[in-house]
Design a protein around this nucleic acid. Structure first.
Lengths: 137, 137
DNA sequence: TGTTAAATTGTAATAAGTACAAATTAGTAA
DNA sequence: TTACTAATTTGTACTTATTACAATTTAACA
């Protein structure tokens, strides 16, 4: 848990129980959970946790660049620790999100349009390996 | 309007008035409107148009690859004609979405993970040229 | 022109996310 | 340690994008 305290300290944000457990949860669950999944899972051992707090904490963590939100599904946000550039694959059948360890070779070119670039997301959609195997397509 | 009839015919989908006006609208409005913007704008000259129809029609057009939905904003879908690969820039300040005429050089590599790839989206976020100019940052 | 399956329409429902005010707590300073 | 204050958490109520569904209408074809 010291690890997470350190991260919050480094970012000059108050060390609170919800922030710590959410950060720990995201460190241990790299499956890109939604706010609701995080809330439901953590609620068991943190009965006083409020859904609003989960949303607030996620927003704070994101603003400090500690985590990122992923808009790939189009219906709800998924969350991911910010650990090096990678892309995401979304399965239209089962909804799972996979990491794709590629980085974008175009990032420099993107600055040529006059916009200030803060984030780059590569989203790929289709049918995942598992669903193909199950013949669910 | 014949142009849009042709597109629907080529895709073997029924030629209906809502589909035609929505397709025309998207052809003339490349600013990535939301379903609600499309509905509101078209409602004036098509009073019988229903919001559900807009959603249904957009879904049909997307399923046939005629248009694509863009999940960049995270809060609602935006729609775009499917015309050649390009990326999108989202301004966190004003919400505008800009086209970025780059294609992804990584597409072949993406097939190496065993998933069936159907769509590739490049999303860039930050502060747009206009907002930077206005000093709104 | 009649038939039928598909599409449209309006209303009601769902679900993700936000607003807000009251209660609590982290961090600081005495 | 204690007291203070601003920030955070909490619960409830609300908003908003999207979907479900049943009744009506319509496109396509015989």
């Amino acid at each position: 848990m010291e690890k997470y305290v350190k991260i919050l300290k480094e970012n000059n944000i108050k060390i609170t129980s919800p922030r710590l457990v959410i950060l720990k949860y995201l460190s241990e669950n790299l499956s890109h959970p939604t706010a609701d999944q995080i809330y439901t899972d953590l609620k068991t051992n943190n009965p006083s946790l409020s859904k609003t707090t989960v949303y607030n904490s996620l927003e704070t963590l994101e603003q400090h660049g500690i985590i990122q939100s992923i808009t790939i599904s189009g219906s709800e946000l998924h969350y991911d620790l910010n650990r090096g550039m990678h892309h995401h694959f979304y399965c239209k059948k089962c909804g799972r999100i996979y990491d794709i360890p590629l980085s974008c070779p175009n990032i420099e070119k993107m600055s040529n349009y006059g916009h200030k670039i803060e984030e780059v997301h590569g989203y790929i959609k289709g049918i995942c390996k598992e669903c193909l195997k199950k013949g669910r397509i």
